[in-house]
C-alpha cells in the first residue's frame, strides 16, 4: 500500500462554480484512498471557503466556449450559448442554477457540504495570506475547518514531498 505515505496538495485559485469542484472531487477521492490532503485557497479560490460567498459561486456563460446549448437537451449540436445572450440579465444566474442541478443529479453535494466532508475526512485547509491582506479578510470570514492563514513559503514547507495540483 504505497498510498499510505502519499501526500497531495491542491492550490485553488478560481472562484467560479465549475472551478471549485475539481479539488473537492479529487481531494475526497484521495482521502478515500488514504492519501494525505492539503488545500491552499488563493485569490478568487478564497470564495470557496468564504462564508458569505461559498453558496453563491457562479458560472457565467459569456466567453465559455464549452457551454453548449445541447447540455440542456436541445438538439443544437455544437452550437454554444451566443455571447450576446450571455449578457442578458439573469443569464449567469440561470447557467449557475443549471450547473448546480447537473451536479446534484450525479449525487455530488453542494460546495459547503463538500468542504465539510473534506474537513471531517482529515483534509487540511489553508487561506493565502497575501490575498487575505489584499481583500481585507480575516479568519472570521472563513468557514469552520480552515486551519490558518499562511504564506506561500509556509505552504511550500508543509507540502514537502507532496504532489501539487494547481487549479
Amino acid at each position: 500500500m504505497g498510498e499510505e505515505n502519499r501526500k497531495i496538495a491542491f492550490i485553488c485559485s478560481k472562484g467560479n462554480l465549475d472551478m471549485a469542484y475539481p479539488a473537492l472531487v479529487m481531494g475526497w477521492a484521495a482521502l478515500g484512498n488514504g492519501i494525505n490532503v492539503t488545500i491552499f485557497f488563493t485569490f478568487w479560490g478564497l470564495d470557496i471557503i468564504n462564508k458569505a460567498r461559498q453558496d453563491r459561486l457562479q458560472l457565467a456563460p459569456v466567453a465559455n466556449t464549452s457551454m453548449k446549448m445541447s447540455m440542456m437537451g436541445l438538439p443544437t449540436g455544437n452550437l454554444g450559448i451566443p455571447n450576446l445572450m450571455g449578457i442578458v440579465p439573469g443569464m449567469t444566474a440561470f447557467t449557475s442554477w443549471f450547473m448546480k442541478k447537473k451536479i446534484e443529479e450525479v449525487g455530488a453535494p453542494p460546495v459547503d457540504e463538500y468542504i465539510q466532508m473534506l474537513v471531517d475526512g482529515g483534509a487540511q485547509l489553508f487561506a493565502c495570506k497575501m490575498t487575505v491582506d489584499m481583500m481585507g479578510l480575516s479568519m472570521d470570514n472563513f468557514v469552520e475547518g480552515v486551519q490558518d492563514i499562511v504564506t506561500a513559503g509556509d505552504f511550500m514547507d508543509m507540502t514537502e514531498g507532496a504532489q501539487i495540483v494547481f487549479i
Binding site: M1, E3, E4, W28, A29, L31, G32, N33, G34, I35, G107, P109, Q116, M117, D120, G121, G122
Partner: peptide, 26 residues
C-alpha cells in the same frame, strides 16, 4: 461510495474515517 455509506447508515464522515482510518473507500 463513501457518501452513500454515510447517508445510508447515519454514520458521520468523521466516524467513518475513525472506524476505517487511512483510506475508508478501499
Amino acid at each position: 461510495t463513501l457518501r452513500q455509506i454515510t447517508s445510508g447508515t447515519g454514520i458521520t464522515t468523521k466516524e467513518l474515517f475513525k472506524l476505517y482510518p487511512k483510506g475508508p473507500a478501499k
